[in-house]
Design a protein around this nucleic acid. Structure first.
Lengths: 235, 235
DNA sequence: GGACGGTAAGTGGTCGTACCAATTTCTCAA
DNA sequence: TTGAGAAATTGGTACGACCACTTACCGTCC
């Protein structure tokens, strides 16, 4: 029995692929506005309900953006747009996967820091310093986590690779970071964190890529240890 | 003016967050079956249409899986499940982003190869060898790309970190790889690729992490060069 | 004539119902 | 006991109606 060409799939999936292809082919440019849901549905030959599901899927992928009352637009297709789903992994994972996430970060972030050492500008260094003092003065866990997060974000941004920054952004989701800090609370490791941040900061000032790489590896090594213990506790 | 608590968002988004939270909290375990779309909609207090969109979103994220006629299930929540959207970036990107993607791969894959050198088993080495010869004998581009892809996949799997493997899997989407090879066609760089693969392979046999790391970095450096030229051509 | 404000048109978001298609479960006969 | 077919279950699709937010238009007032 010959297979009907393009049959064994749902209409919604076909619509998703169609739009995605049009974007990949350049027929739909970043920022461009798409036709109405109703028109799109008519053009692709499916109901508005199904079309909406396709749009929802593409929205989650970070390819499209729907603005209530205004229309549907192609995103800028920046890595950050396409990779923000990434954070879900960090939110949901635990045990082994948590450890694996940190280990990937341990590979990427030192490399990012090394690149940042050669590229970060004066303003970036000032903002880093500000985050460090703000974090030290912070009182609530919420606050401290925020500054910690921002410290690392500035460095990864300075590395000049948006894909790298987006991935590390996902690995460092807020909920994940909060969990780590919660676990630390009782052990009083805050001073060590401050010292490690300072170590990284100084390497950046001195434009010392290898120093930044090593300091960052050490810093994340501590988190890795935590994840390892966390995993053991679950068993 | 007091803000209505939990108001300024769509019902669908609320449903997405609700389900996601239930999974993160462990109320919904991997592989578990969920209630009917109709029941879920009733429980969460929204229409079936909106509920379906929420489910579609979670499906794209790799958190849920809907089987026609059978029901809705939580996936195994393996990194591979949650990260297969990752490939979209590689499919759609071009120019600068293409270069950035390769650069991230240049950071991750050498590390993966180094880890694999210490962990890969006899069977893995045999499969690697098989892919190498199959690739050398390949005639169509399709075929060669397939074996090339598989060669790298085996190594990243052997590294023992599913998150790492999933990310690299996304970075190495088939369509992306095909584009690279298409660009190479005229230059006759096949021999060099074979030689580089062999270099990596021998380092793995010798259980030489640093050798594997370096050989892989060199190999991907070549791809980076291609991406750089590709980017320049677009301008 | 130009700025302002309100109204109407456009468009995504939600709802409800009906029906189709794949799967699972049940039933009954061989 | 077993196996084939019927029935119930459940996700997939299609309409049609209405709501909520944006944008654009148009008339009024300064």
């Amino acid at each position: 029995m010959p297979d009907d060409t393009g049959a064994r799939t749902t209409v919604t999936q076909r619509a998703i692929d169609e739009i995605k292809t049009r974007i990949a082919m350049g027929e739909l440019a970043p920022g461009q506005r798409l036709p109405t849901e109703r028109d799109l549905a008519a053009d692709l030959g499916l109901s508005r309900s199904s079309m909406r599901e396709a749009i929802r899927a593409l929205t989650v992928m970070g390819v499209l953006e729907a603005r209530h009352g205004a229309g549907i637009y192609v995103t800028q297709l920046k890595p950050g747009d396409l990779l923000d789903t990434f954070g879900v992994v960090a939110e949901i994972s635990r045990g082994d996967t948590l450890l694996h996430l940190v280990q990937v970060r341990k590979i990427l972030e030192p490399a990012a820091a090394a690149a940042a050492a050669a590229r970060i500008d004066e303003e970036g260094l000032i903002r880093l310093r500000a985050e460090m003092t703000a974090m030290e003065r912070g009182t609530t866990a919420e606050e401290i986590v925020g500054h910690d997060l921002e410290f690392h974000r500035i460095i990864t941004e300075a590395a000049g690779n948006p894909v790298l920054a987006a991935i590390l952004g996902g690995l460092n989701s807020r909920t994940f970071r909060a969990r780590v800090w919660r676990g630390y609370r009782e052990e009083g490791v805050f001073p060590r964190t401050f010292r490690e941040h300072d170590e990284i900061y100084r390497s950046l000032i001195e434009r010392d890529p290898d120093g930044a790489r090593i300091a960052t590896a050490v810093h994340i090594g501590a988190v890795e240890e935590w994840a390892r213990r966390q995993k053991d506790d679950e068993e």
